[in-house]
Amino acid sequence: MRVSTNQVYANRQRLANSRLAEYVEAQNQVASGKRINELSDDAPGALQLLRTKSLSRAVTQYDANLKTGKDYLQNTESALTDIDKLMDRAYTLALAGANESQDSESRSAMALEVRSLQEQFVRLANQRGSSGQYVFAGQEHDAAPYQAVAGVLNFTGDQNPILIEISHGNVLRVNSDSHATFQEAFGALEELRVNLESGAQGALSGVSIPRLQDANKDINALRAAAGTGINTVNRQEDFNERRLEDYAKDISDIEDVDLADAISRLQQAEVAYQAALQVSAKSFQLSLLDYM
């Protein structure tokens, strides 16, 4: 084929140019570490990437929700633990009060202690979470739900659930429906106090002790439920962590360049570019003019 002078120059130029483009592209991939910078770089892969990123973002949010729920449950559990201790103390006082060796003076001292236990009880029943919500109030958790009025524990909250979204379509209840248990336990304390004050030894051993035992059992059940909730949250957190790792791996598989591969391609591109430049330099030197 006949070759015109312009063809030689244009072809060499084009060759060197396309080698340069490949070189720069390889350089960019190594520098950015990303294989997909625009969707059209790999359209099917990029769609997969968008989908996986979306899933991963949702899990990140569920994880944040779990932290909120855990906070709620932990505040619940720690309040219930304290209430449990307080009820144990009341039970001990009841046992001591029922003992015949006690005189009325020591019983009224015990009654005073029970009064302070009652105050503590109300404080603990009005436990607040880190966002300031009253954890035993149900959904009406913006106001203190429990007030002791004339020896009776009044409840102004509701029994509605506080739900957190832990995965798509799945919710976890993080508050406990505790007002009946609390009111009963408080009633038992009140009765204990009255019996101690009046020195009703028979009522102490016949009524207060078994009533306190029952109340203790119920409080413990609530505490166990909160503990189970915390376990569920922990398990879900582990599960989410694994899922996030899987997603991160998927995203990296699609989006990131294989560095070893990219570097060897960069070297290849560099050699190809040098070769193109050398060919150009050599062929530009050749001209009939040099031999005339």
Partner: peptide, 30 residues
């Protein structure tokens, strides 16, 4: 125009929008 597949596109904004509701559902008082 769409700025994908980074975090500056509508895809991320949609996810964060629904995440926002999910977070608020779990802690409405916050």
């Amino acid at each position: 125009v769409y700025n994908e597949p980074g975090d500056l596109g509508i895809a991320n904004a949609l996810d964060q929008f629904f995440n926002g509701w999910s977070g608020l559902a779990s802690n409405p008082a916050d």
